[in-house]
Design a protein around this nucleic acid. Sequence first.
DNA 1: GCCAGCATGTAAGGAGTTACATGATTAT
DNA 2: ATAATCATGTAACTCCTTACATGCTGGC
Lengths: 180, 180
Amino acid sequence: MSKKLSNTTYAVLGLLSFGEALSGYEVRKWAESLRFFYWSPAQSQIYSELKKLEKLGLVSAEFVPQSGKPDKRLYKINADGHAAFSEWVNDAPLEPTVLKHSLALRLFFGHAAEPERLRELLADYAQTVEEALGQLAIVEEFTQHTPGFSFPALVAEWGRRYYEAERDTTAVMLERLDED
Amino acid sequence: MSKKLSNTTYAVLGLLSFGEALSGYEVRKWAESLRFFYWSPAQSQIYSELKKLEKLGLVSAEFVPQSGKPDKRLYKINADGHAAFSEWVNDAPLEPTVLKHSLALRLFFGHAAEPERLRELLADYAQTVEEALGQLAIVEEFTQHTPGFSFPALVAEWGRRYYEAERDTTAVMLERLDED
DNA sequence: GCCAGCATGTAAGGAGTTACATGATTAT
DNA sequence: ATAATCATGTAACTCCTTACATGCTGGC
């Protein structure tokens, strides 16, 4: 049917598929919550994705003059957009998960590191994992109690389980380093 | 010190840091085993990374004439390369993990999907997880019994734990979909 | 008085992929 | 016969990031 768009393009379209008209700025804020399981594109990319979607006729833009701030552009998904989005969710082939785990990469090459430094890196990582768990707890709580967010709630649970596993594994890795 | 190189560049340098001289083709094969926790760059990129490393003076290349095949270039890390690599492993700031989980992204937008299709996607994913676990079991077995591969063995364990968590979570997600 | 938040956009460039090209050898 | 393995490389392109530019409002 339509030429393939990137997952990122669909992610932006998907954020509009909840029905509300959003400005680029607002899309960006919502997109940040995707970072736990996808990743958050740069601000400039979100604006260009929105323009692309408009050119494709999947969303329409409405000007909202602002006083003091630049004019706001409110983007709203239309019928074609809904159709294209459903087609993607249902029919697109499942792409492999991409994991770029910098710490695992460096641990893999641990022979070139000072052992003490490796422990420090793992400890740092453990802390960022805790932070992510804290933020996810808020997201999970919110999505579970907000009608229409049952799917985001599922994904928040997925994220929580992922970070819990990371927490456990980090602890195991620290133990393994002490074994030798 | 030296200008920042990408993680991918260091990953290639790291594969050479085990000491053996490798051709681009061989680097590529080793790089494939990184895909469980990092990702495997395209063939063409590996060749260009190797050229970059040579230009930077971190590896040296030796021509090995072949009969029938294109001449082989054997790349070997040198002292500068070892130094630069250790510096990266020890001192580089820890970059955040990047996770691009296409299935989670689509589940997030599950309101636009047919419920039956979502179950199919999860079932598909469960299978690729099982395959990854099978391959990782082989890697883990091999690295645990090969001297000098204790760090890769740790990372293989990390990978196994990650995929085990994914298996569990996929099952939970399927249950959740049946609850409603 | 200053910083955070609102609000959009451009330019330059790096990182990475896909597709193509070539061709002998070995295993099925 | 034909597919897989060995072996390297280029060209075109997309995706995405970084850095910059602008400027008002509201809270501390």
